[in-house]
């Protein structure tokens, strides 16, 4: 019994310790003031690797999710004869919730795991050490551009996801099922408020972008530099990011849309 409590305490301490390490790590990354010229090129490279390469999965998933929303919305709403409200339903779900959340989950799976694996591999092959020995801070050269890249790419990906989703919903609702186009957009415009709905969605995705990239680069940097270590770090990235996104989504939704 005592043994079990001791074990619990130890794992609690271990948890606190890894939180502490990731905080120190984050501070180390953020303190390094970016040098304009060279760092900008590194950032562009990461925006390419993180943002552009995730675009395909974001476009395809956004389109399908929008189409499914259109289909489901139509079947439910037509029971009440208010299938005109389909536009507002699709837009609000996407802009407020599904856009930021699904983008973040896909991001964790596509870009986050790749970041962790890449950094872990650089650690395992001593590339990070050799950088340190060349007098180059890997936090600044390798980690910071990846963190900022993820941070910038996520909101862009999320608005693209929402837009494509709305277009997919319109494809199904208007072009296929025959909802009147005027009321589709009209209802949507009447109910979606730019600063309350769209902006809150963007704020969510900024938070998610930051958290997901932080988890990904930290797991990569902190991993055990062996193949087993890298693969477990990659798994951890996806699991922790997904949990963090869903948990934070609840908190943010309660703060933003809760009526108290």
């Amino acid at each position: 019994m005592i043994d079990r409590i001791a074990r619990l305490g130890r794992s609690g301490l271990e948890l606190a310790r890894s939180f502490g390490r990731s905080g120190i790590f984050l501070a180390g990354v953020l303190v390094g003031v970016p040098r304009t010229g060279a760092d900008f090129a590194l950032l562009v490279r990461q925006l390419y690797a993180i943002g552009v390469l995730s675009l395909a999965i974001i476009l395809v998933s956004g389109l399908f999710i929008g189409m499914v929303l259109g289909l489901q919305g139509y079947t439910i709403l037509s029971d009440y004869g208010s299938e005109d409200a389909i536009g507002q339903m699709i837009a609000l779900t996407l802009v407020r919730e599904l856009g930021p959340v699904v983008t973040a989950l896909l991001f964790a799976g596509r870009a986050g795991s790749a970041l962790t694996a890449e950094i872990g591999l650089m650690k395992a092959t001593e590339q990070l050490s050799s950088m340190e020995m060349m007098g180059v801070d890997p936090l600044r050269q390798v980690i910071a551009p990846r963190l900022w890249g993820g941070f910038l790419a996520m909101p862009l990906l999320a608005v693209i996801f929402s837009s494509v989703g709305i277009w997919g919903g319109k494809l199904v609702g208007v072009d296929w099922l025959g909802v009147f186009e005027g009321s589709f957009w009209g209802n949507m415009q009447a109910s979606v408020e730019f600063f309350d709905d769209v902006m809150n969605g963007i704020i969510k995705s900024i938070v998610f972008g930051f958290v997901c990239s932080w988890i990904a680069v930290f797991q990569g940097y902190d991993c055990v530099p062996t193949s087993a270590g890298i693969s477990s770090a990659t798994t951890k990235t996806v699991v922790y990011s997904s949990l963090a996104v869903l948990g934070l989504d609840f908190v943010l939704t309660a703060v933003m849309f809760g009526s108290f």
């Binding site: 001593e126 590339q127 050490s129 020995m133 060349m134 007098g135 180059v136």
Partner: peptide, 28 residues
């Protein structure tokens, strides 16, 4: 870091940056 600019270290694995060419590795 300033002191390390005066040191060179050859790692066991070589530790070349895998995403850039030989030329860029030396130029880094």
């Amino acid at each position: 870091y300033r002191l390390r600019e005066r040191m060179g270290m050859l790692f066991q694995s070589g530790a070349l940056f895998t995403d850039i060419s030989v030329f860029e590795n030396v130029a880094f």
